[in-house]
Design a protein around this nucleic acid. Structure first.
Lengths: 256, 256
DNA sequence: CACGGCGTTCCACTGAGCGGAACGCACCTT
DNA sequence: AAGGTGCGTTCCGCTCAGTGGAACGCCGTG
């Protein structure tokens, strides 16, 4: 958790960021440990954050508050992006009735901006606001393929952690997949991040600069055939792309 | 913008909160004005916030950043609530193909947690994370009807601002509408917050304590008949209510 | 060209923030 | 029962991060 934290503000932000996308509630000690702050300091600042309604407190510890949630939703760029994107995701869901995702690239991660899934949705571990490494998801591979050479080098050079028996951990193999992704305009995932999960993703074309958004449809191995949804995903992605271009929405690169 | 702001942290939060749900980008001077901070101080803190990626800066001024957006999405209570609610909203949308909202009560406001609307959605001004007063929307009236007596008194006692020619500004009239809302389990809005907009809402039943969530369907006067969707909304709301009860999700009261 | 409003830089003062030490408490071992 | 461990909390004297008035340069506008 490397942050500049020599000022109250930095420390406060560090405390907020200490909450990963999976841990909901953290005790004071854990918080102090993660941020590397002295217990006392963490205590003081965390309580101040509670006072200012950025954190909630219950007997079990601290958690990010609804106030923070509300504040986050006001971030203009992401919000207008979402508002424009929703109808397309919506349509895609209705055509496929499988889980639909919208993701942005941030560094070597995907951040999921939206997820639509009905009652019968596959047990995908993704969560809105959550992160995944680029190399092992369909959205990730699409975005990686369209990212600059530095990012590709960084990912292909770095270790490719095996997350399931099917994760592509050979850089050569991955590189080839990225090539075909560029050619065909879609990427697939076959249980590479999560066992039992298949996925197709297409990049949202950006007027200028690098694509950093992608849309995907995913479903369980039991019934889902990714190849069957290629056209639908592509349509949604290009539809959104056109919409964004018309509205002159800047590409989300680094925005997040 | 009354906040306790005698500490850096308080001031920082005040700066973030200075961004209303409608203003995207604020200049330094405007920011200083809204928070009542000296220009210098606002400048220093705002830049610190930029450094910590809670604000973005472009030639036009400051805006809430994607980092803040991401952070907000991690707020556990709201997130799990949303994850449980989405399928129901989804279904409701598919049944009606009109704009669907999920709202919570916070004080005398509704806060919209989710909005689903396809391409043909009505021009409702609501935005995810946005607020509306309780007295003039369907969701608001439902929530008001189920709120404690203090809240009712506060709203009915306070001035009812006329937002359109159809806004119910007579306390007596409003009170009667709340009664029928309690009896029938749904509330309507006929262009009371926005011209051309009709809406039905139903409360999400809470196992214990006060209901503070509601679901609505809305559409334009041109084609939308709220009465026709009563059953669908009610079904979605009780469905979600059962789900929440089963999962023992605490009621969202004051959570936000 | 003077004016008002913007964002920015400088700098001397001071109190908000700091964190080590020490405490009470609820669990576990032994 | 006695000791140990990890938790959240309180106290308090030191000091440096945060403060904000003054002053500056840069636009537009009347």
């Amino acid at each position: 958790m490397e942050e500049e934290q020599d000022t109250v503000l930095g420390r406060a932000v560090a405390l907020l960021r200490a909450f990963g996308s999976d841990d909901h509630v953290l005790g004071l000690a854990e918080l102090a440990r993660r941020t590397g702050l002295p217990k006392t300091t963490a205590h003081r600042i965390a309580n101040a954050l509670v006072r200012h309604r950025l954190l909630d407190r219950d007997p079990y510890g601290y958690r990010l508050s609804g106030g923070l949630f509300e504040l986050g939703l006001r971030a203009s760029t992401e919000r207008t992006l979402l508002e424009l994107a929703m109808p397309f995701l919506q349509d895609l869901y209705e055509r496929t009735h499988e889980t639909v995702h919208l993701g942005v690239r941030d560094g070597t991660d995907v951040v999921y901006l939206a997820k639509i899934g009905g009652h019968r949705q596959a047990a995908s571990p993704s969560r809105t606001g959550g992160r995944m490494p680029l190399y092992c998801t369909a959205i990730g591979k699409v975005l990686l393929a369209h990212a600059g050479p530095e990012v590709r080098r960084q990912v292909l050079g770095g270790p490719l952690e095996r997350r399931t028996p099917h994760t592509v951990v050979a850089a050569g193999m991955l590189r080839r997949q990225l090539e075909t992704a560029l050619e065909t305009g879609v990427a697939f995932e076959h249980e590479e991040s999560t066992a039992g999960l298949l996925c197709v993703a297409a990049p949202v074309p950006a007027p200028e600069g690098r694509t950093s958004l992608a849309i995907s449809v995913s479903g369980p191995t039991t019934r889902f055939r990714p190849e069957g949804h290629v056209d639908a995903v592509r349509a949604a992605a290009t539809g959104l792309g056109n919409q964004l271009a018309r509205r002159r929405i800047p590409p989300g690169t680094g925005a997040l």
